[in-house]
């Protein structure tokens, strides 16, 4: 088993797969899905929309049966949107839409970098620090943005962002360590 992002590439042991690249791909897939979903949420839940205007929930009996929901749950779905709108300052949406776009695109780039790392490609080792570093920056922007929202959104977002931050921190420090130790290969 190899010991890191590029260690297998040393000498003539550049065979097989680099498991760290496989993990980078896995996290890249998950982060791409997460950021794309976040982007959709930001686009769909707009200030001034129905929930923001205080319109009562539309809870038709057939819809409740179809979705296996109670009347109370149906009403709380509107409250759920109201929580987001009430806790999120307008500037957060303006900041987080481009951040989520960048996050989703960078996640896709990280999948490609992970594939390259798994296959011991030189370009992947060289670009890993930049790619993972930018992912770390995306986490930091998200964290500081959510820090400045209300407690309801902090409760929803901060822990998740923190988990991603430490995952990306592991990836970027490993890339630095590889570069520092001269395991840059081929």
């Amino acid at each position: 088993m190899s010991s890191g992002l590029t260690t297998e590439s040393q000498g003539d042991n550049n065979s097989g797969i680099n498991w760290a690249g496989v993990i980078v791909v896995l996290f890249g897939l998950l982060f791409a899905a997460s950021q794309s979903n976040e982007l959709m949420g930001l686009l769909v839940v707009e200030p001034g929309s129905a929930a923001d205007q205080g319109i009562s929930a539309a809870c038709r009996a057939d819809e409740l049966e179809e979705e296996n929901l109670s009347q109370r749950e149906c009403e709380l779905m509107v409250a759920n949107v109201q929580i987001v709108l009430a806790s999120r300052p307008e500037w957060v949406r303006g900041l987080m839409i481009p951040t989520s776009v960048a996050g989703a695109l960078l996640a896709i780039v990280s999948i490609v970098v992970g594939l390259g790392l798994a296959g011991h490609r030189r370009w992947a080792t060289q670009s890993a620090i930049y790619c993972f570093g930018l992912l770390l920056l995306i986490d930091l922007i998200g964290f500081f943005a959510m820090m400045n929202t209300g407690p309801l959104l902090r409760a929803r977002y901060l822990w998740n962002i923190l988990l991603w931050f430490f995952i990306h921190l592991c990836m970027v420090t490993r890339s630095f360590a590889d570069r520092g130790s001269g395991n840059e290969l081929e």
């Binding site: 897939l29 899905a33 929309s49 929930a57 539309a58 809870c59 979705e67 929901l69 759920n80």
Partner: peptide, 23 residues
């Protein structure tokens, strides 16, 4: 597929559709 899982859990918590609620 991962996006579909993440988005479906989220979108099913959006208000039920009506003329006003188009989320």
């Amino acid at each position: 597929i991962l996006f579909l899982f993440a988005s479906s859990w989220w979108m099913l918590a959006l208000p039920l559709p009506s003329d006003e609620f188009t989320y």
